[in-house]
Simulated scan of single mutants.
Amino acid sequence: MIFDPVLGTYGDKNPTKIELSHEIKEEYTAEFNAFKDELEVKDLLGLIPGLSPAQRRERLQEKVTELWRESRESALNGIKNLMADGIAIAAFAGIVYFNRHVLAHIRAFSNRAFLSLSDPVKVFIFILITDMFVGFHSAEGWEVLLEGIAQHFGLPESKAVIHTFIATVPVMMDSVIKFWIFSYLTQFSAAGSAIYERMNT
């Protein structure tokens, strides 16, 4: 990645300034405890040569250092992803802005293609999209998506924020989509509007 050299050098020079999220700290601690327990079990079972206190401490120190580097890398990955995605969005916006005429042709073609579909197919597509994003079972999908986004950017996975988002945003989306569908279908397809109303009663 293009930001690896810059952020990697900063992380090496300032290891204590890399703030770890609560989730990364928990994972770090769990892995260390699992390694420590495994080392003790192997020592008691005689699966490894007897370890002196100094050797045991050395092995644990090596594991701690390894886990700290991995955790720091995970924390930096969030910043790298944020910067890379920001540049990608800016580049995409620039491409769209300088190719507005192409976008207009694509939009006109999409409208013609959609209008050529039969009314039941149009209604099926509308219901499929609305149920997928704002339906009864969409909460689990939103939760997985939001947790994935938080992990991608190295943000804490706050259940309160996620549940607040799910309780508000899909409801607003549902209202907007239903209003748009009603306006669109009544304007371009009265039969489709009647089918949609019957299927949602």
Rank of each mutant, 00 (worst) to 15 (best):
M1A: 14
I2F: 15
F3Q: 13
L7H: 02
L7F: 03
G8L: 00
G8H: 01
T9L: 14
K13P: 00
P15H: 01
T16P: 01
L20M: 06
S21H: 01
H22L: 05
E23R: 07
E23Q: 09
K25A: 04
K25I: 07
E26V: 15
T29A: 15
T29M: 07
T29L: 11
N33L: 03
A34M: 04
A34W: 07
K36E: 15
D37K: 05
D37S: 10
E40Q: 07
E40Y: 12
E40D: 10
V41E: 09
V41N: 05
V41F: 03
D43T: 12
I48G: 08
S52L: 14
A54N: 04
R56G: 08
R57V: 12
R57G: 11
E58N: 08
E62K: 12
K63C: 03
V64Q: 13
L67E: 01
R69I: 14
R69T: 14
R69H: 08
R69W: 09
E70G: 02
E73G: 02
E73A: 13
L76P: 00
L76T: 02
N77C: 08
G78E: 05
I79P: 01
I79D: 00
I79N: 00
L82A: 10
L82T: 03
M83H: 06
M83I: 09
A84H: 12
I87G: 08
I89A: 07
I95C: 09
Y97S: 12
Y97K: 13
F98A: 05
H101F: 09
H105L: 10
H105R: 13
I106G: 00
N111A: 11
N111C: 07
N111D: 15
R112C: 03
A113H: 08
A113N: 07
F114R: 11
L115Y: 02
S118M: 08
D119H: 09
D119C: 09
V123I: 05
V123N: 04
F126C: 01
F126Y: 06
I127W: 00
D131Q: 12
F133Q: 06
G135Q: 05
H137V: 11
H137D: 15
A139S: 15
A139H: 11
E140C: 06
E143T: 15
E143V: 08
V144S: 04
L146N: 03
E147S: 12
A150E: 07
A150R: 02
E157Q: 15
K159D: 11
K159F: 01
V161W: 02
V161Q: 12
V161Y: 04
H163Q: 15
T164M: 05
F165A: 11
F165W: 01
I166D: 01
I166M: 03
A167I: 13
A167D: 15
T168G: 04
P170N: 06
P170Y: 01
P170Q: 06
S175P: 13
V176S: 06
K178H: 14
W180L: 11
I181W: 00
I181L: 08
F182V: 07
S183A: 13
T186W: 05
F188C: 07
F188H: 15
F188I: 14
F188V: 11
S189M: 04
S189F: 00
S189Y: 01
G192A: 02
G192C: 09
S193E: 05
Y196W: 05
M199E: 08
